[in-house]
């Protein structure tokens, strides 16, 4: 069983970091993982995307054209990648910045205002963690408590950010479950 998760948004939205935390959490759960960034010549403020592959056996191709899941943080990302998501996948839509839906009937598309939720928690910068948690809740790929452990470990050198990001995990789970 293999899942591919694409994280996409503006440069600066923490796309690479939330993808890394997911990979770390899945690895800690015992899965094979690969974290594949797009490292093309992108402008500052341009699109950033990153794919995490999670599998119960050694990962073959790290090149994924059709991911199973998508976490879209801005509108260009949703428009570009929603059509290529495999049927049956999860699409998390950051409805704070994306006024449209996924336009797909064969996926679990969930609109969550992750940027607004993050602002309410205290910092817009934790929007990526809210989205990651919402995705984890919806896809059930990783365990909530383990995810929190990995968030803590990731921010271990910036300890003052830990409480905010743990709240972001809970808020993301709650928002995903309400929907």
């Amino acid at each position: 069983m293999q899942s591919e998760v694409m994280f996409a948004g503006f440069g600066g939205q923490g796309i690479l970091l939330s993808a890394k935390i997911l990979a770390q959490t899945a690895m800690t759960s015992g899965f094979e993982v690969a974290w594949i960034p797009s490292y093309g010549p992108e402008m500052r403020g341009g699109t950033a995307y990153c794919t995490v592959v999670i599998s119960d056996r050694p990962i073959g191709s790290p090149i994924i054209r059709n991911p199973l899941h998508l976490v879209a943080m801005n509108r260009p990302s949703l428009e570009k990648f929603a059509p290529v998501v495999k049927p049956g996948g999860v699409i998390i839509i950051n409805s704070s910045l994306i006024p449209i839906g996924a336009g797909r009937e064969d996926v679990d598309a969930v609109s969550i205002p992750v940027t607004d939720i993050a602002k309410e928690l205290g910092s817009v910068r934790s929007a990526n963690i809210v989205a990651l948690a919402a995705f984890a809740a919806r896809s059930k790929l990783v365990d909530r408590e383990l995810l929190k452990e990995c968030v803590k470990a990731e921010f271990s050198k910036k300890e003052k950010l830990i409480p905010l990001n743990l709240k972001a995990v809970d808020a993301g789970f709650q928002a995903a479950q309400k929907n």
Partner: peptide, 10 residues
């Protein structure tokens, strides 16, 4: 190749 350098794996 570039992916070997850029990818993260365990």
């Amino acid at each position: 190749d570039g992916l070997i350098g850029q990818m993260m794996e365990p």
